[in-house]
Design a protein around this nucleic acid. Structure first.
Length: 647
DNA sequence: CTTAGGG
DNA sequence: CCCTAAG
């Protein structure tokens, strides 16, 4: 099947390496929701995420022009200029070879980028199938290309069946399949989506916090910003993180290393989440869990089935499936196996037996415009591409199913009913993955993806895929009381323990530079002490809990002062008034602090912990609390009486 | 997004 | 601090 998209970049050959990964321990679920497996599109997204994440890096690591693959080192882009110049044919970015090999490059890229050498301007993509990378300096030309990555050294046969990538129409998009890609089999197209590539943003603050730091004291009453509401970006980040955590879908957003990314990615995600929850409430199975295990068990057939010519959309990259460690690989295979059944299935009339193996062979990203100086390094270019793609996909993906170019919208149709039962047709089966940017995800009751996978009947929840593709060797703040998300934790563990992730390895090698990758969040000294640094925050910290930052006396004082004036219940105002500069203090934090202050004031000094708060402040807390509580009750009474009068 | 509360 | 329900 071909996944058609309107992207420029085509990531081809996205296959799950057979048994390439060792199982990882299952992570402990931290949130209930997490246990429910992933959504269909999550699955796809995962694939995308994989591309973008650690392995994705690999993918992006090598840039191919035309068919010849070249591994570009970190040399100035200029050197490659000519090449690019003629690349009309297409640049291919691929991850060639085993995933574990390329990490170095990836790392390198990051480093270079982080150094700020490259500045990228926002780029946008057009819907047409060609992707372009433009050097604003004129260094680059546009190319349409595909990224070929075949990480599936072991599965090459799968590719056999590819067809022209022509895919049919892509729904509303005008995208036309770009024939250019040789194997457009399953190219995932992402609709054009404006992406902003942050300049050197690069690494998001740890925990998404922007840190203000010094300002912590922040008692700047005078400085009431008229600035609109206080919207801590952080919140957004947090949200994302949380979502990710709960959904296991860490990849994309997180992937982005840029804090900024959150802006773009966040919203969609948020909405998505909302939707999801809404549905759940409604009882929809929207989030139908795939159960990885089940997949494995049921689906896994031998991949060896040869004959399958069609492409498949593969399940989540093994990398992502970390949850059930031991199974992860297996599950992946299972998917493959499923496909194989598919092939053989023709004969089997049993709809029940029907199995489809899916692999995403190519992933095309819409046109991207990247502004980059000529003297930037190739590595930085790669990184930019990565960021761009990440941004595009960060909000999640919507899945569409195309059969012979026709979009199958009825999610309730069985595959057979939809005509996806024969080989001949399977060839024309395609998927569309669209960035789930602004709109809510389409009803995914049974999104196609799931449908395809369903044959496997998963009964167990899909193990949480660890979205976090890149196992960053994250240094977990010593302070962090609880392990980051189970997934994360797990991830980390495994990384440390046994199988070092590629990234990690590379990191080691690049140790000298590694620091560059680890932006130290700006924070006050105490905070630093706690969190030495965090390595390239990528997703691993996904769910990292914010570090604890005890309120200083001055902060308490400021808080008390503000509350005395504004009262309780107006935390946003309090924040604005007294903590506008303390980015790490959200109004919720202030509210919580007040709560604890009140409690502290009520208990005996012996029971208090932490930095002692001057008694006079505590007294003020109590009085203010009493005062405002009274006010509140009065107000209520007043309202009530008014209501009564009206009645 | 804000509040309010429970965890 | 986190998480959520509500508004």
């Amino acid at each position: 099947m071909v996944l058609e998209k309107r992207l420029d970049y085509v990531f081809n050959g996205y296959q799950v390496p057979k048994g390439s990964r060792s199982a990882r321990g299952k992570s402990v679920a931290r949130r209930k929701a997490e246990d429910n497996g992933m959504l269909a599109f999550e699955l796809l997204a995962t694939v995308a995420g994989k591309l973008l994440s650690g392995e994705g890096n690999d993918t992006l690591t090598n840039i191919e022009v035309g068919n010849s693959r070249r591994v570009i080192e970190e040399k100035p882009l200029k050197t490659e200029h000519c090449e690019w110049g003629r690349c009309d044919e297409g640049a291919f970015v691929s991850n060639v070879g085993s995933p574990r090999r390329s990490p170095k490059y990836a790392r390198k890229n990051y480093i270079s980028t982080s150094s700020g050498e490259v500045s990228c301007a926002p780029f946008k993509n057009s819907c047409v199938g060609k992707a372009k990378i433009r050097g604003n300096v004129g260094g680059f030309c546009n190319h349409s290309g595909s990224m070929l990555g075949n990480r599936n050294e072991g599965h090459s046969h799968s590719y056999s069946g590819s067809h022209d990538g022509k895919s049919g129409d892509l729904m509303e998009e005008d995208v036309k399949p770009s024939p250019a890609l040789g194997s457009s089999d399953s190219s995932v197209e992402v609709p054009p989506y404006p992406v902003f590539t942050p300049k050197r943003s690069s690494f998001p603050n740890y925990l998404g916090r922007d840190d203000d730091e010094n300002s912590s004291g922040c008692t700047q009453p005078g400085k009431v910003n008229a600035k609109k509401a206080y919207r801590p970006q952080r919140i957004g980040d947090r949200r994302i993180r949380r979502l990710l955590a709960s959904k296991h879908w860490k990849a994309p957003p997180l992937t982005s290393t840029d804090g900024e990314l959150s802006n773009t990615g966040m919203k969609p995600v948020y909405r998505w989440k909302k939707m999801c929850s809404a549905r759940q409430r409604t009882g929809h199975q929207t989030c139908a869990p795939f159960k990885k295990r089940k997949l494995v068990g049921t689906c896994s057939t031998s991949t060896s089935e040869g004959g399958i010519s069609s492409e498949y959309v593969s399940g989540p990259p093994e990398k992502f499936i970390k949850g059930e460690a031991s199974d992860s690989i297996a599950s992946v295979h299972g998917v493959h196996g499923a496909s194989s059944s598919f092939a053989g299935q023709k004969s089997s009339t049993n709809s029940g037996d029907f199995r489809v193996k899916l692999n995403i062979k190519s992933f095309r990203v819409p046109e991207l415009f990247i502004e980059i100086p000529e003297n930037a390094t190739v590595g930085s270019l790669k990184r930019m591409v990565m960021e761009a793609v990440t941004t595009i996909l960060g909000g999640g993906l919507r899945v569409g199913v195309l059969l012979q170019g026709k979009n199958i919208r009825d999610d309730n149709k069985t595959l057979l009913q939809a005509g996806i039962s024969h080989n001949d047709k399977i060839d024309s089966l395609g998927f569309t993955l669209e960035p789930n940017t602004t709109h809510a995800p389409p009803p995914l009751e049974s999104s196609e993806q799931p449908a395809l996978l369903l044959p496997c009947n998963a009964s167990e929840p899909l193990s949480r895929l660890s979205a976090s593709p890149v196992p960053d060797p994250v240094e977990v703040p010593a302070v962090s009381p609880d392990p980051p998300l189970a997934i994360t934790g797990n991830f980390i563990e495994s990384d440390h323990d046994s199988a070092p992730s590629p990234l990690e390895v590379s990191l080691d090698k690049t140790s000298p530079n590694s620091l560059a990758l680890v932006p130290v969040p700006e924070m006050n000294v105490e905070a630093l002490a706690v969190v030495p640094f965090h390595q390239k925050s990528r997703r691993s910290e996904l769910v990292q809990r914010r570090i604890r930052r005890p309120f200083s006396v001055s902060e308490v004082k400021a808080l008390v002062q503000a509350v005395e004036k504004l009262g309780t219940g107006r935390w946003r105002d309090v924040k604005l008034r007294a903590f506008d500069n303390a980015k790490h203090r959200t109004y919720v934090d202030l509210k919580d602090k007040w709560k604890t202050l009140v409690h502290t004031a009520k208990i005996s000094p012996q029971q208090r912990r932490g930095e002692p708060v001057p008694q006079d402040l505590l007294d003020r807390v109590l009085s203010a609390h009493a005062y405002w509580s009274q006010q509140q009750s009065r107000l209520q009474i007043k309202l009530q009486s008014e209501a009564c009068l009206l009645l």
